[in-house]
């Protein structure tokens, strides 16, 4: 599975398909950090939200890069479960690289400042750790959404794009404060709100966000596995 993951990462990087999402990431980071500095937890919370649709798009691109016949050859070689897992692992690694870039990007441009005097904002180190968690949760959600938009599931390009755009928009809209069905989407908006609050979120809030993300991803991956069962 590791060899197949390596082959897919290499294939994706060499294909040049990484360029459009990379440009989008740089544009988002420029918007985010071009206008001044904010606390680490707040900055990283909103960074994770803004990256979510791009990460899902990146996952779709990674899973769609390999020709269908080559994917079948890989499936034949390593079996259906490992073949699907290798695709998701390759996508997760590349999306993880984008998250790392987003975590590092604000520092050279002084986009992050320490807590204001007299405020209850968390210290920088705590903010960075919360940022890592926020990006990790966004990555997991994007991985699941991107997988559901892959060509192997939707069979044609247009339905995949529709699912990707709809899923990304719904993640924002249904995640707004006061939403009646926030559990229908991964909690990227709730995470940003929690990290953007005046003080650091408590352990219970963070645990709730993690459980919400894991449950949502479990359901999405179960659907992905079910849809892929008869489609190679």
């Amino acid at each position: 599975m590791i060899a197949l993951t390596r082959m897919r990462v290499t294939g994706f990087v060499r294909s040049g398909r990484a360029l459009p999402p990379l440009i989008a990431v740089l544009a988002v980071l420029s918007l985010l950090y071009g206008g001044g500095a904010s606390s680490a937890s707040s900055a990283y919370g909103y960074s994770a939200v803004m990256l979510f649709p791009i990460l899902a798009w990146l996952v779709k691109l990674v899973l769609d890069t390999e020709p269908d016949v080559q994917r079948r050859l890989a499936r034949l070689t390593v079996g259906p479960v490992r073949e699907a897992a290798a695709g998701l692992l390759a996508a997760a690694l590349l999306a993880g690289g984008v998250c790392l870039l987003a975590m590092v990007a604000p520092w050279p441009f002084r986009g992050i400042r320490g807590p204001l005097a007299g405020s209850t904002e968390p210290p920088v180190l705590t903010g960075v750790l919360l940022g890592v968690l926020a990006h990790l949760l966004a990555l997991l959600g994007a991985l699941a959404l991107g997988a559901l938009t892959a060509r192997v599931v939707t069979r044609r390009v247009l339905p995949g794009v529709v699912v990707l755009v709809t899923g990304s928009v719904l993640a924002i809209v249904l995640g707004l404060r006061g939403s009646v069905v926030p559990w229908l989407v991964p909690p990227v908006m709730s995470t940003a709100r929690a990290l953007g609050a005046e003080s650091a979120p408590d352990a219970g809030t963070l645990a709730g966000l993690v459980v919400h993300t894991l449950l949502w991803c479990a359901v999405a991956f179960a659907i992905y596995g079910r849809l892929r069962r008869g489609r190679s």
């Binding site: 020709p67 269908d68 016949v69 080559q70 050859l73 034949l76």
Partner: peptide, 11 residues
């Protein structure tokens, strides 16, 4: 398996 058309569109 040797498919009818080898997937040559790979980098």
């Amino acid at each position: 398996w040797v498919p009818e058309r080898f997937p040559a569109a790979q980098p």
